[in-house]
Structure formats: C-alpha cells, structure tokens
Design a protein around this nucleic acid. Structure first.
Lengths: 334, 334
DNA sequence: CTATCTTGATAGATATATCCTATCGATTGA
DNA sequence: TCAATCGATAGGATATATCTATCAAGATAG
C-alpha cells in the first residue's frame, strides 16, 4: 500500500514543481517561448528510442542536455509531454500531438535546408531508403537511372519489414520505402505503384520439380522449403497460399536474408518461393544451377511500390525520386 | 569487489570515447546550425515590412538584433537571402524559397502551440479575420453561431480589399478571410463558398426610382452614385456593368467605408449599388427611409466565401471556423 | 531481502549566444 | 552641402546551453 501513495505524491509534487518553475520563468527576460527546432528533434529521438540516454546519444548530446531540452519544451507549452516514473513511460496525449507537429516541423526544416542547398549546388545529398527483402533486387531499377540524372546523389538502402518501413518513414529516418501497397493500412503516405508480385518456385536444376512446366501450391507444400521469417509479410502471404491447399507446408528453414535462402536452394536440398521478377532480375535462372517454375492456381498478386511522406512539398531529393518512380512504373507494370 | 572496478573502467572508457566523438563532431562546441523559429519570424516580418527597422519593431526586438538574426540564417544556409544595398532591396531567389518554408514552419509552430493550448483549456484564443467591405455584414452569420459553440474565442475583423486579404493570409497575418472566390486566382487556399452576390439599387425612400419595381443598369448609370473606391473589386464589377450599358456612369462620391456610403444615400441626393443580401442583413430597408430596388439585366453573380490557408492540418481555431462555415453555407446559398 | 544496476533528475561550472545601447558609414533628398 | 534615413558593427551585460559529477528512486538478480 505504500507504492501508490508514494507515486501519487511524486506526481503531485512534479506538477506543483512544474507550475512553480513556470511561474519563476515568466519573470526572465529573454527566451520566454523560444522554440528551437533541435529540441523538437530531441522529442523525435525520444519517441523512437524510448530512453532518455539513448535518445541523447542519438542526438549527439548528453542525457542531462536532452532532459533539459524536453523539460524546456514542457515549460513553453505549459504541459507535461512525457510520462516519467523512474523511467520513460511514453508520452502524454499532449505529448503525442506535439510529437506529430514536431515531425512535421523537423521534416520541413530539413526539406528547407536541402532545397536551399540544391539551389546552390544542384541536387545532392543522401537518399535514405528501405525496402522489403523481396523488393531489394528491384531497387536497382530505381537507383540506376536516378543516379544517371543526378550523379551527386548518394544512397543508403536498408532491408526492413513492411511495418518497419512505415515506422521509419513516419519518424523521418528514411526518405522513402519500397513495400506492399495493398495489404496493410499505409497511413499518410504518397504511394507510387511499381509492379505486381507474382510467385514462383525456385529450385536447383537437379532437384525434383525442376523440369516441370508448372507446379501447384499443393506440390510446393510438400517439398522442404526455405522462406523468409514470419515477421515478413511475404512469408505470411506465401504461407497462407500453402495452407489453403490443406497440406501442412514443410518449412524447414527460415531467415531474414535472401542471400541465405539462395545459397540453400543452390544445394538442391531445399526449394523456395519467391516473386517471379526477383529471380529474373537477379539472373539466377541464367546459369544452369537454378530453375524458377511458375506456380498454378489462384493468381494472387500484391502491388508493390514506392512510398514517401504525404507531405507537400517533398524534399527535392524525395520529389526527384518519386518522379523517377513514376517514370519507370509503366515499364514494370505488365 | 570486481564489479566496481570494471564499472569504473567502463565509465572511464565511455567518457573518453564521448570526448573523442565530440572533438570530431565540431570545432565550434555548440550551436553550429541551430535553427530558431523566432528567426524565421524575423524573415516573415521583413517580407511584409520591407524594412529592417520596422520589421524589428514588429517582432519586438531592436534593429541590430533582427539584422543579426537574418545574417545568422544566411550563415546557416550558406547563402545570401536578402539583397541589401544601402537599404532593403528584396529577397534573393534562395531567400524567396526560404521565406516560403519559413511561412509554413512558423504557421505549423503556431498551430502546434494553439492545439496544445486547446487540449488544456478548450478552444480559446483570437481568430483574426478580414473581409471585403460588402461582406462585412455577413461576418455576423459566421461569428455569432461560432461564439455560441466556443464562448472563449475572440475575434479581430479587418475590412480589406480582396487582394489584401490574400496577401494577409499568405503572411499568416490573418487566420481566414471572406472574399470573392471566382474572380481572381486564389492561390493555395481552402475555400468554402458561402453565398452569391447579387446587386440592387439602394436609394432613399423619397428619391427618384425608389418606387420602381425594378430598374435597368442604364437607369442606374444616370443617377448620382456613391460607390466603393476603385481598389475594391466590388466597385470594378459594378462599374463594368454600368459601362456595358453604353452610358457614362455618374459616380460622384467614392469611399472605402460602407457607413459613409449609407449616410450619403440616406440624404436622398445619392444612390448606391450594393449586394442584395447586404441591405437586408443590415435591416436598412426595414425603416421607411431606404429602399432597395432589384436591377434588371444579365444576372451577374459572384461567389463569396471563406478562405483559409491550404495547409493541413489547420490550427484548431481555423479548423473550427471552416467547419462552422460549411455548416451555415447551405442556409445561405439560395 | 539485500546488493547492485539502471534510469532520469539535479547541481555547479563554464563557455556561448543573445540582446541592447551607442555609434558608424553609406545613400538619399532637399 | 547638410540633414535624414537605413542598415551594419562594436562592446558589454545577461541569459542560456552544455558539460561533468552526482543523486535518489525503482528494477533486478542473487
């Protein structure tokens, strides 16, 4: 019975203290309500790290500095933004709203810097992208022509799950993503459809089923499979197809790495299921080692495309990427 | 007793590492590129005042402070933003772009504050509006029901020309405006049509034409008229109608004040042309002193409505006003 | 239940930034 | 030519930002 009382008392004390501090502050001469964008970045970092120390490190400052920054925000708004016990306990409702605006303002300020820089030095900088594993091979069709037009632009490409991509986008940690457009709610994003994902069986040339014109999902379910881990949407889609046949699939190996899956398929002991376009793009079927066999049955296709923030205007780099995506889309959509 | 030693060693290592990182990060220790929103406001003030001293006064700082603020912005971006000779000579192209972003960021930061405030204290604050003179009487139909719902909200309403309203809106000096929707290019705004402007002749009860069922534009052109000044779009519209009859209109008095026009019409020596709705809303025709006579001829109507920034989301106050406008619009559009 | 670790807050010191007043130099106008 | 206007600059007072070091309150492991 001691804890609740102490906790309540602590909170009460916090609120009282904050009010008192606010009262004192109002007498100070300057910076009554100076909003520094860097402090908003503190809030963003805190939102993704959920830890004052880690957030501080991410911002390149010490923990007391970040704590003070957040507290200053709370003082300017006159509201507690973060629920604190002995540790970070999430944001208050007001904090959530401020966080939303902070994302927008920080994004805009970055876009502003980038645009001015682009006016001076042409389109340059680093585009941060993330793609679902099965779309990784497609990134090239976007980046290669883009770089031909804008040689000064650099890329960072991460392999992530579809949900992670949306979260990264929301937190301004990436500029755009390549992911499914039609399965999960996308939220506030600009989407450019690029191609449809169709599935094929990938097997070694000397493995069973390799000489077939086509196979059924039921047959696929009976060979030892290596697939992506279940946190990937691609895996869930394929697994659904397999289970719909009534046969319990034989998924003997899973990984989050496409390279690992390939290397196993090459041994002839495993097979895998992957998007048709992926196999051909990588030229895996050019050698005589691997075959990709069409899978019969209901044509399940999933639209994959570029997602960027729904903000208007976009940063010059992101805008150029979206333009590039719109340009190549017709040649990909069969 | 092994742990403390290890811990100390770890901490020592951490500190060394941190120092090293900081050393690499910057030669200047702090604030290499700190963006303060207040400085962006300096830029907005400079854009509308076109004068360093006046802009400084508008921001509540001295001129050197504003000069330094602008210069700091220029240093952060590494570009000149303002063309200076011995005086303010406008913005550079980069300056114009920064100005555009500054408007957006400043607007968002205000909206953020307002929203947090609204979460704490309910919808409160001051709505800054501007309306064209002929729409002034209509403002009441918007503000009265609005205040009934949100009693804590205060209003500031300015009488301005339609072009001024758009400029004020652009510079965040007003939250919304009441103006013509279909005559001039509106730019980036949200528009809510409210009603159509139709014209009537306003005359004293004992003046010529007062007993007519209706009059023609040609007849109107022959009586001494008092109208708004030519910078008002309303005046230009009416004048066009009059000239189209081929008769040179007899505009013997012009003013930017509707009250002045009324007081002259009441003498019986002048007549005026005004929107039908305006006369009835003010109850001018209830007394026996004034009559409003329908004008025959081509039905020229001009749509009038509420304009607000095209930004999304709007500030809570502006959003509530737009909602209110949408609510009352059906009862106004006949 | 105790010892230890983790986490965020706080204190004190110092460097930095901000702002004001006063003044200057250049242009503009009379 | 002289005064007025405009924006830049210098110098000094003061607020602010950041660091290091440390603390106290949970959480955790033994």
């Amino acid at each position: 019975m001691v804890f609740p009382i102490k906790l309540d008392f602590f909170r009460y004390y916090c609120v009282l203290f904050l009010r008192f501090t606010l009262f004192l502050k109002s007498k100070h001469k300057y910076a009554d309500e100076v909003l520094v964008i860097d402090k908003l970045e503190f809030l963003l970092a805190l939102a993704r790290e959920k830890h004052f120390g880690h957030a501080a490190e991410a911002c390149g400052v010490t923990q007391p500095t970040l704590s003070a920054g957040v507290k200053q925000l709370e003082e300017t708004f006159g509201v507690l933004l973060v629920n604190r016990g002995s540790r970070f306990q999430g944001f208050t409702p007001e904090g959530d709203r401020v966080l939303d605006w902070a994302r927008r303002i920080v994004g805009d300020s970055r876009a502003m810097r980038q645009e001015v820089h682009a006016l001076k030095h042409g389109l340059a900088g680093r585009l941060r992208l993330a793609a679902i594993p099965t779309a990784l091979a497609m990134v090239e069709t976007l980046t290669t022509p883009f770089r031909a037009r804008h040689p000064a632009v650099q890329f960072t490409v991460l392999s992530r799950t579809s949900t992670e991509i949306l979260a990264l986008l929301e937190n301004l940690e990436i500029d755009a993503g390549l992911t499914y457009l039609d399965n999960e709610p996308l939220g506030r994003v600009t989407a450019v459809p690029l191609y449809m994902e169709r599935y094929r069986l990938l097997v070694a040339a000397d493995a069973p089923l390799s000489d077939r014109e086509s196979v059924s999902w039921a047959e696929v379910a009976q060979v030892p499979l290596c697939l992506l881990t279940p946190d990937m949407q691609n895996r869930r889609i394929i697994e659904r197809m397999l289970r719909d046949t009534g046969v319990e699939p034989n998924i003997t190996l899973e990984s989050d790495s496409m390279v690992l899956l390939y290397s196993h398929v090459r041994t002839g002991r495993w097979a895998s299921v992957m998007p048709a376009r992926l196999a051909t793009t990588l030229g895996l079927t050019d050698s005589d080692k691997l075959c990709s066999v069409p899978i019969e049955g209901p044509e399940v296709t999933h639209s994959i495309g570029l997602v960027a923030p729904a903000r208007e205007p976009l940063t010059p780099l992101t805008a150029a990427l979206v333009t590039q995506a719109r340009r190549i889309a017709p040649s990909l959509l069969d």
